[in-house]
Amino acid sequence: MSNRQKLKIDENRLREINNFLLSDDNPLVTNLLDLIEKYGGVNEINRKAREARKLDNLLAKLDTKNSPYIKDLQWLQEQRNNDAFITIPDYQQKILGDKAKSTKFDDSFAVTLEISACQYFPWLIAEAEQSIEKGELMPGRFIRVRKMAEQTADNDVIAFAAGMQITGSSYVETLDTKGTYPGPDGAPVNVHLGGPATITGY
């Protein structure tokens, strides 16, 4: 049997970590806290984030930029409001037929249908169209891997965020710090690929 005590963190190690984080002589933490305060503190930053990701505000931003994605988002809203997407019970009935009524489904084993990666907003609309046409489940999670400069230039990042608000899906935006892009020699620019910088980027 495994020795659970091996999982215990030595109190001296925890004290060292706390001393490092709380030290006034730590420029790393001090600069980070100064940066947070520069933008109003944690609560204000989170408030602005919640406000910015409201659907009405996202659509308004796209409208001011004359985005061609507005019509697609309006269509997506209509499909959601009209219950055009297949429900879980209806999908179970479609796959299992009469057996669906007598089958007990254990939600503790539920999985999330994920698309990785969905680089461009039009792909989301194509997925929605196919889901409706073929009676397929709409994915509940999307992973995005695209350069930030590109998707902010064409407002794709705003449109996708709005689409996620409409469908109720969760999503991940991959930051450029992950370092998977090839350098001049063809190798990833992040020589520590798989390390902290990569995890932070994701």
Score class of each variant (00 low, 15 high):
residue 194 G to C: 01
residue 200 T to L: 14
residue 38 K to F: 08
residue 202 Y to M: 09
residue 45 I to Y: 04
residue 2 S to K: 12
residue 171 Y to F: 10
residue 195 G to Q: 04
residue 136 E to H: 14
residue 100 A to L: 08
residue 97 G to C: 11
residue 183 G to C: 07
residue 118 C to V: 01
residue 143 I to M: 12
residue 48 K to P: 07
residue 185 D to I: 00
residue 140 G to Q: 02
residue 152 T to H: 02
residue 117 A to Q: 02
residue 34 D to I: 01
residue 42 V to M: 13
residue 187 A to E: 10
residue 169 S to V: 06
residue 9 I to C: 10
residue 70 I to A: 15
residue 89 P to I: 09
residue 151 Q to L: 15
residue 126 A to N: 04
residue 194 G to R: 03
residue 78 E to P: 07
residue 147 K to G: 13
residue 92 Q to V: 06
residue 132 I to S: 03
residue 23 S to F: 07
residue 5 Q to V: 10
residue 98 D to G: 02
residue 47 R to G: 01
residue 176 D to Q: 00
residue 56 D to Q: 14
residue 103 T to V: 02
residue 32 L to C: 00
residue 19 N to P: 00
residue 190 N to P: 04
residue 138 M to N: 08
residue 130 Q to M: 14
residue 123 W to G: 12
residue 118 C to Y: 05
residue 44 E to M: 05
residue 104 K to R: 11
residue 126 A to W: 09
residue 162 A to D: 12
residue 23 S to I: 15
residue 176 D to C: 08
residue 167 T to K: 03
residue 80 R to K: 14
residue 201 G to N: 15
residue 4 R to L: 13
residue 192 H to C: 06
residue 178 K to Y: 13
residue 200 T to K: 13
residue 50 R to S: 07
residue 30 T to L: 15
residue 168 G to C: 05
residue 142 F to I: 05
residue 166 I to G: 05
residue 27 P to D: 06
residue 31 N to P: 08
residue 13 R to P: 05
residue 42 V to Q: 13
residue 199 I to G: 14
residue 145 V to P: 01
residue 13 R to S: 15
residue 19 N to V: 14
residue 120 Y to Q: 06
residue 160 F to Y: 03
residue 25 D to A: 09
residue 90 D to L: 03
residue 136 E to L: 00
residue 163 G to D: 09
residue 67 S to Q: 05
residue 97 G to I: 10
residue 82 N to L: 12
residue 85 F to M: 01
residue 32 L to A: 14
residue 43 N to R: 12
residue 195 G to R: 11
residue 77 Q to D: 00
residue 141 R to A: 13
residue 72 D to G: 08
residue 10 D to L: 06
residue 194 G to E: 10
residue 12 N to I: 07
residue 22 L to V: 06
residue 49 A to Y: 09
residue 179 G to M: 02
residue 107 D to H: 04
residue 164 M to T: 09
residue 95 I to P: 03
residue 18 N to S: 15
residue 185 D to C: 08
residue 115 I to S: 00
residue 135 G to D: 03
